[in-house]
């Protein structure tokens, strides 16, 4: 993490200013509806903000704690389903449902974490897929409560209490606010003892343990925060789209897309997920609009290709290319010479 070193006084001032500027940028997104007013554009902006928010929530676990979850749809879906069910069955306001749903997701994440965090790396990724799939299958089969595979739809009843609005601008402001909160949380984490502990365990878990870091506890905190914020985003999604289906909100495909946006933008950075969403959402909208009829699947194929190219050539995401363009060239060059390099060192 280049953000954590202080090479020169000049850069140190830039470093002090960076978080302020970041927060200002995120806050200013809430003002977008003042500039843009047509429905289509607002919907588009909402989408960018939405993907940025859910990817940023993933980023706290995936990017900062190195917990490469492929099951974040579960947390998102728990938020969406809990708040919708509470609203439809008991008339509970989504504002309260959002908190309840997020707490449910938080508990679920703690359960997963307690059960799987002694596993490392890709085992954790697999375990998250399994948990998310169990949840999805349960929802599909719990027809009486969850509406099964058709999902649940909410009737359009505008009102602040219902979190349902006549105008899209309100939705945009709301999503921008959530993105702001997630970004601010990420910044706070980055600068706290928790952030340093996470940075350390990402580099070397054994060394982190030897320095007194309870790595499991730290990871649990990260995944809990991440799950909570994912579920908040889930509620917002549910009351904007007004329809949730298990395949879309609980499927593996969704989980992969969440991770993909954070990775493409830049994991372990505050602005990476926003950057990823700004690039990927327009691309997918364009490809879908242009080719949907003739070539369905093209946009996911391109997603996949971008993902491969990114993790192989630019594992720190696009944001690293913006911060230090030369490092990209250096990396590509090193890659080329690396093919003649001997085997990677085995740990003793």
């Amino acid at each position: 993490m280049s953000t954590m070193s202080t090479p020169s006084p000049k850069e140190s001032i830039a470093r002090r200013l960076a978080p302020v500027l970041t927060l200002l940028l995120l806050a200013s997104l809430m003002a977008l509806p003042l500039v843009v007013t047509d429905t289509y554009s607002l919907h588009f902006i909402w989408k960018v903000l939405f993907w940025a928010a859910i990817a940023a929530a993933w980023n706290i676990a995936g990017g900062y704690a190195g917990l490469f979850s492929l099951g974040h749809a579960a947390f998102f879906g728990l938020g969406a389903y809990t708040s919708i069910l509470l609203y439809m069955q008991a008339g509970v306001s989504p504002w309260i449902g959002m908190i309840v749903g997020s707490l449910v997701a938080l508990c679920f994440s703690l359960a997963i974490g307690l059960l799987t965090l002694r596993l490392r790396g890709s085992f954790f990724a697999l375990a998250t897929i399994a948990f998310a799939e169990v949840l999805r299958i349960a929802v599909v089969n719990g027809r009486d409560v969850t509406g099964g595979s058709e999902g649940l739809s909410v009737s359009f009843a505008p009102g602040l209490v219902n979190m349902i609005f006549q105008d899209r601008a309100s939705y945009v402001v709301l999503m921008a606010a959530v993105l702001f909160v997630i970004g601010a949380t990420t910044l706070l984490i980055e600068r706290s003892a928790l952030g340093y502990s996470l940075a350390a365990l990402r580099e070397d878990e054994d060394a982190a343990e030897a320095l007194g870091i309870d790595t499991i506890r730290v990871k649990l905190i990260a995944i809990a925060i991440s799950a909570f914020l994912s579920a908040v985003t889930g509620t917002l999604y549910a009351f904007y789209i007004l329809l949730i289906e298990p395949t879309t909100v609980l499927g593996i495909g969704f989980s992969v897309e969440i991770a993909l946006i954070a990775i493409i933008g830049g994991m372990g950075t505050v602005l990476g997920p926003l950057l990823g969403a700004i690039l990927i959402v327009p691309l997918s909208e364009y490809l879908r609009a242009e080719f949907a009829a003739s070539l369905q699947g093209l946009y996911l194929l391109i997603y996949g290709t971008i993902l491969i190219v990114m993790v192989v050539f630019l594992p720190n995401g696009l944001i690293s290319a913006i911060r230090d363009p030369r490092s990209v060239l250096r990396r590509v060059r090193r890659r080329k010479s690396a093919s003649s390099r001997p085997e990677e060192k085995a740990d003793a």
């Binding site: 280049s2 070193s5 940075a199 350390a200 320095l211 007194g212």
Partner: peptide, 20 residues
């Protein structure tokens, strides 16, 4: 076999220890 936190600065490496 030394285990530095490679992508952290020297100071941040030691800071992590101090968090104990």
């Amino acid at each position: 076999i030394v285990k530095p936190f490679g992508k952290l600065s020297v100071r941040d490496n030691v800071l992590v220890g101090a968090l104990n």
